[in-house]
Simulated scan of single mutants.
Amino acid sequence: MDLPYPGSEFRPRRPLPRPYALERPRRLDTARGARMTGRDIPEEYLTGYADILAETTATGRRLTRDELDSRRALGERAAEAGFGLRALVGAHLAAARAHWPAGAGDSTLAAVEQTVDAFAEGYERAQLLAVRQEEAVRREFIDDLLHGRSDLGLLAERAERFGLRLSHAHAVAVAQGATGYDEGDAVPRDVERALFTRFGDRSILVTTKDGRLVCIAPGDQEDVLTFFAKQAHAATDGGRVAVGRSQPGPGGVVHSYEEALNALGLADRLGFDAPVLYTADLLVYPVLTRDRQAMADLVANTLGPLRSARGGPEPLLDTLVAYFDSGCVAAEAARRLSLSVRALTYRLERIHKLTGSNPADPVHRYTLQTAVIGARLLDWPDKDL
């Protein structure tokens, strides 16, 4: 029996249920501030500014530490209130023009420069703090979402902030490269940018977890995950991508995520070379390993006699792997092993003699092939069963 080994092509799978539209993850709201002008800025954010201009003009001094700290504090408050920096700078310039002291010179211009610089510093500090707090909230949400550790009701409420409605179905794709990635790295940013450029407002969440790239998308929009697989495979220099099945409900994301992780683990143990793995193609493997003891018994009873072969069981086990992976075509299996067809045939005969099962016999083939898969899953013969 030919088992469903995954293909190497990037291909969409069967349609998934229920289309729906979701909102994009919320960003820091700067739209209102961006529309404002200097005339819209309340006077409270210019408190003491005219007095500073008058004092510095009269004395020629620079701003004191307390004056600079007061400007920074006003900048922080303005940022927290949502005002745009351009409008705030415009308000300062307009106020300087309105309260320009008599006899003003270079010292007055220096005071304006110091004031605006300190105000902008406080503004940027508040913005940076807000971004870091937002990143921390996002990271905590993602960790809870992918580990299923939080109360599902609370998790669903938090998810809406990031554009996910967990009452609907979602699917998760996971990409693993040769190195690990953090959320602020260039590779995740490039992949996310490509996705949003292509699909726009589709409730896509791209993040990282344990050094891997993760994409969460509505379950009916498999074209998003297919495109993510292409972009991630290229961005990670040939990394492997696994796509979980669409799963419904608040626990669907973590279920699909775990499926994708398990598929990556299977690929490592079984030596798959496909760039993209679909867990729906790999459902036979969890079935085979559900009863581990039964599988261990099958491997020991079927393949155990290979231990008595000269050179150990590994060459003959590799022969069976190549033979089954090539569709039981001797010439192709010999090519993969860099053997002559005659040498391959000799090995198959040796396997038949030791195990009593003939790889070329359809009756015996299923048992041998299942045992070979079990040996690869259980890492036999390197590990004792």
Rank of each mutant, 00 (worst) to 15 (best):
S340D: 12
P248N: 02
A156N: 00
S246W: 03
L225A: 03
A294V: 06
N358F: 00
A111H: 00
L339E: 12
A91E: 12
T367L: 10
R24A: 12
E157K: 09
D185S: 11
R26F: 10
E43Q: 14
D361L: 02
L298H: 07
T57R: 11
L288F: 04
V187L: 15
P275D: 13
A156R: 09
G103W: 10
G311E: 08
R292I: 08
N262R: 15
A94F: 04
L377G: 07
V174T: 15
R292V: 12
R77E: 12
R342S: 14
R77V: 00
L166W: 01
E258Y: 07
A104S: 09
T115H: 07
R138D: 10
D201G: 01
D379Q: 14
R62Q: 11
L53W: 08
R71L: 14
E80S: 11
I142V: 15
R149K: 06
G327Y: 09
L282R: 14
D382M: 08
G148R: 02
V172I: 06
V253C: 11
R26W: 13
A126K: 14
R39G: 06
F324K: 10
R149E: 11
T37S: 14
L337P: 05
G249I: 08
L109H: 13
G33D: 04
E67R: 06
A111T: 00
L164F: 11
G312Y: 07
A120Y: 04
V329F: 02
D185A: 12
K353P: 00
A229Y: 04
L152D: 09
V89A: 10
T226F: 09
Y278I: 03
R18S: 09
Q114Y: 13
L16W: 05
D182G: 08
H99L: 03
E55Q: 13
G38C: 06
P15G: 04
E222V: 10
K383E: 05
G177D: 01
A94I: 04
V321H: 09
R365D: 12
P25S: 08
H170C: 07
E140Q: 15
T197N: 10
I52T: 07
G60I: 03
L378F: 02
L354E: 06
A217P: 02
E44T: 13
R11P: 00
L93R: 10
A333E: 12
M36Q: 15
R72H: 07
V341A: 11
A235K: 05
T57K: 13
A330P: 03
V191R: 03
G153L: 14
A242T: 13
Q369E: 15
D379I: 00
A371H: 05
L270I: 01
A234W: 14
L354C: 07
A171E: 01
Q231M: 06
A263R: 09
A280R: 07
F196V: 13
G148F: 00
Q369T: 08
P42R: 11
T319G: 15
I351E: 06
E44S: 09
A234M: 08
L88T: 10
S338R: 15
A274N: 09
A136N: 07
V299D: 00
A371T: 14
L368R: 09
L385G: 00
D382G: 02
F199R: 04
H255L: 13
H170F: 13
Y123W: 06
A235S: 11
L306P: 05
L225R: 14
D51E: 15
D268T: 12
S246E: 08
Q133D: 11
G356M: 04
F324I: 07
R27M: 12
H170V: 03
R86G: 04
